[in-house]
């Protein structure tokens, strides 16, 4: 079972990113579940979402305490939340950032999802949409396939720019 934890702020699309990822994995023929941990806070508070992907049906409902992959959609969260908590020793981190960030040890990858969203003018209520480009980056990392990622995005969004943004992230992420 592959376990992913996504850190974002309320309203940034972390919860939707988890759903999209689960859908893409599902379209790959895998089993997948996605769920957020909601506090009662309003917009802007740190939110955690979880995704599990497996070849077998998934019966675990508890939170992910030892993720294989940590995704950080807003690196400002790293000042208040220990995003690396419990990360497996061979685990990976994917950061939404144009540059490497000090303090992220281990296998860290960077991709400027915000820049990609802005380049595609994917902005809702003043915030760039990160949930579709991140799926492209995850496809590059082999978590899901690119065709399934695109399919999932098209199932959830009608705006084709989302697919373009995902492709851009796929191209941009260096493996």
């Amino acid at each position: 079972m592959y376990e992913i934890r996504i850190h974002s702020r309320g309203g940034q699309g972390g919860v939707t990113a988890a759903k999209l990822l689960a859908l893409a994995a599902f379209r790959d023929g895998k089993h997948a579940t996605a769920f957020p941990f909601y506090g009662t806070e309003r917009r802007g508070a740190p939110v955690v979402s979880f995704v599990r992907i497996d070849d077998e049906p998934i019966k675990v409902y508890s939170q992910i305490h030892e993720p294989d992959l940590v995704i950080v959609l807003d690196t400002s969260i790293m000042d208040v939340v220990d995003v690396l908590d419990g990360l497996k020793t061979d685990g990976t981190v994917l950061l939404n950032s144009a540059h490497p960030i000090t303090g992220c040890n281990g296998a860290c990858r960077y991709v400027d999802l915000t820049g990609i969203a802005l380049a595609e003018n994917l902005v809702v209520a003043g915030s760039p949409i990160l949930n579709t480009p991140v799926i492209g980056a995850l496809a590059k990392m082999g978590i899901v396939t690119l065709p399934s990622a695109e399919k999932a995005i098209r199932e959830m969004f009608s705006d084709e720019r989302n697919v373009k943004a995902a492709r851009a992230a796929y191209e941009e992420l260096k493996i």
Partner: peptide
């Protein structure tokens, strides 16, 4: 005097 501290968890612009 403030009886409601500024650290509330209201949305921005509430």
């Amino acid at each position: 005097e403030e009886y409601l501290y500024k650290c509330t968890s209201a949305c921005a612009g509430c």
